[in-house]
């Protein structure tokens, strides 16, 4: 059985992958219109969501959503809900994968064929999705243990760079008191949405304890701040909006 700490890994993973595509874009689009306030609110809302969902699902030890819904609802309804979830997940996964391929082609290896890269990722994903949940959690832990130090190093390196414009950051900070905005609030809470994974992974959690939920809040807040401010610091308050993959352009310029 998985220990409760794996729950945090799921959330941390989700908040770290948020920089890949849409979250920074949405936040930065509304940098003058309440993105900052939305971040602050999303930290509170997101943490509450995590706590709430974790609390509810911990009432069903070792059961995923299919097993929980199964005995409670008519079969047809359960299948419909599960189908809906499956489509949702598939679309989310496919979008991430496609944008990943695009990023790879644009920034890492421009001379490889798109189908080849796609194929490579797909083979990996197909191999991995045949493994059981527990193995995937173990793997997630290892991958996080390898990448987290690199991410931290890169972040500190980015913040310590003399070309990082703190003035731009402070300038955005003056828009703090602008009323929050729905789009950026929704985007920012994505960082906390790792708890959704529990609907399947709860099968391997026996006694989920939610003692250190505050870690999720702080971590999510820091990640969102970095997500939001580092591109601004590099490209200036106005320049950031010219990039599609804001963060990869930032990483490239570092």
């Amino acid at each position: 059985m998985a220990k409760p700490r794996y729950f945090y890994y799921l959330i941390i993973m989700n908040s770290l992958i948020n920089i890949i595509n849409f979250v920074p874009r949405e936040l930065i689009d509304r940098r003058f219109e309440g993105a900052l306030m939305s971040i602050v609110i999303s930290v509170i809302v997101g943490t509450l969501f995590v706590y709430w969902f974790g609390f509810l699902i911990s009432k069903f030890p070792e059961k995923g959503i299919p097993e929980i819904l199964g005995p409670l609802m008519p079969k047809l309804l359960v299948s419909a809900i599960l189908l809906f979830f499956a489509v949702l997940w598939y679309v989310a996964g496919a979008t991430t994968l496609l944008s990943f391929v695009d990023i790879t082609l644009r920034f890492i290896s421009p001379d490889t064929g798109p189908y080849l890269v796609m194929g490579g990722f797909l083979i990996m994903v197909c191999i991995c999705c045949r493994f059981d949940s527990l193995s995937l959690l173990f793997g997630l832990e290892i991958i996080l243990a390898i990448t987290l130090p690199l991410i931290l190093y890169a972040t500190f390196k980015a913040l310590g760079n003399p070309n990082f414009s703190w003035d731009a950051v402070l300038q955005i900070g003056t828009h703090f008191w602008h009323a929050p905005d729905w789009m950026s609030l929704a985007a920012a809470t994505f960082s906390f949405s790792g708890y959704i994974n529990l609907i399947i992974y709860n099968r391997v959690f026996q006694n989920l304890k939610l003692k250190h939920i505050w870690i999720v809040g702080i971590e999510g807040f820091l990640v969102l701040l970095v997500t939001f401010f580092v591109p601004i610091g590099y490209f200036g308050t106005v320049g950031v909006e010219r990039h599609v993959y804001t963060w990869f352009a930032t990483a490239d310029s570092i």
Binding site: T104, I108, S109, T112, L116, V117, G120, F121, I123, M124, I127, C128, F131, D132, S135, L136, F138, G139, I142, I143
Partner: peptide
Amino acid sequence: LAAIVLGLVGIVICFVGFTMYLCSQ
């Protein structure tokens, strides 16, 4: 082999795949 086909990305994919494989054992 992965490096021949996909370059650096291939190595990373292969590494992640290998890690996951080890974890699934």
